[in-house]
Amino acid sequence: MITPPEIKKKAERKYVSFLQSLVLNTPFEKLVIRGDKTYTKSSLPEFEKEIQLIITQSKEKKGFGYTLEFQQVKTKYLGTQDLPTSIYFDTEIDFLKFLKREKEVELFRESIIKIIKTFPELKEWIIKNPIRIIQNQTEWESILKVCQYFTQNPNPNLFIRELPINIHTKFIERNQSVIKDLLDILISEHINKEEKQFEKRFNLKYAEPQVRFKILDREISRKFFLGIDDVAIPKSQFEALDLPVEKVIVSENKTTFYTTLTLPKLEKAIAIFGSGFSVSNLKNVSWLEDKELLYWGDIDVQGFEILSQFRGYFPQTKSILMDRHTFDKFFENDNGTPSGISAQLNLTDKEKQLYDILKLNNWRLEQEKIPFDYVNKYFENE
């Protein structure tokens, strides 16, 4: 026989559709709870105890909740007994008081009135997402302020905390998920649909990755950077640079990037800290397309995979100090990190041969283990 906790569980399952009916202004209809129609108790006291349990939690005893309808049924073991054949909630109040949701639904009604009055076009979203209305029920006034600002200013070009909205400075950051869903509807023609990051999607400024580089030509350093030769700037600013350089060295690791300070000063050259797979930050730097590009990474599988990635952006890229001679000369039997990549790589035949050897044996020679004088001698001969 069904128990009061099971009745409550089944009633909870009807709660979402009830909320949807409120949005649609559908009158409340009797909510029927399907009961267990099998009665297997062979002991009359046990049977009576179960019957009394569901009766004590019913509207008849509590003044609200589910109503029971009984019918005389002939049972296998207990003879003819009055058994509950129908369980239902007759009114909205009965249903909500039983679930202890009266206040929640009162706030839900207030919220949907406020939202639909401000943005009628959100009604369909509310119908599909009633629980999210409840989850955010203390925040709707502020959420709607944010939405109103964006509908009037769909291309703010400001940082989130610069937006002139009378809300807590961290409010948007804390409520991005629901705000995103609403703005996707309200300003759909202005959003960058392919972008998942909130700031990029909604035309806001954001903390860009920095590109760090060294100017290896003293004249360029003096003329463009007041003599500074170690610079880090946002990616978009780096993309917009217009420097008279011809050669660009990209170094995988920070330590070897520092090594470029010891290089012989090179005319019309800069060195960039690639930071491993973060070389993806350089893929839209169009002014690199006609430069001589030299990539210097670890002699391990990841080093060659990053080289392949970078060469995918700039096919003219040449690897340096990543050859078999350098590997054999300085290898110290270090293990690398296994790679699961099986795709075809953008490598030359010699690079691919070394890559396969490294992958098979899980070997690694870090850039840092190549002596400075060997590196300097290489560039002196460049």
Rank of each mutant, 00 (worst) to 15 (best):
T80D: 02
E92H: 01
N281I: 12
Y355S: 08
Q367L: 15
L307T: 09
S58V: 02
F213G: 01
S177G: 11
D82S: 13
P338I: 14
K350R: 05
F213Q: 00
R132E: 15
E368V: 08
D290E: 15
L22C: 02
E48N: 15
I131Y: 13
F47M: 04
L78Q: 07
K369I: 03
I357W: 09
P338E: 12
P130L: 10
G227C: 05
P120I: 11
T38E: 14
K117H: 07
K352G: 09
G65C: 05
N381M: 13
D334Y: 15
S251M: 14
R324I: 15
Y15W: 03
K37G: 08
E267L: 06
L360R: 13
R218M: 11
L158P: 08
T67K: 04
K100A: 13
Q81P: 00
E195I: 00
S188F: 06
P45Y: 01
S188R: 05
L263R: 02
E106Q: 08
D184P: 01
T26R: 11
V250F: 09
I131K: 11
D181H: 09
K30D: 14
S308R: 00
E102K: 06
T40I: 14
E102Y: 03
D229R: 12
F331T: 09
T260G: 06
D373K: 14
F159V: 05
H168Y: 11
L216I: 06
Q210M: 13
P244L: 09
T151F: 06
S42E: 13
Q71F: 02
G297E: 04
E289Y: 10
L204S: 03
I172K: 03
C147G: 02
Q316W: 04
D356I: 08
N346M: 07
L347S: 01
T169L: 05
I131A: 07
I133E: 02
R324G: 10
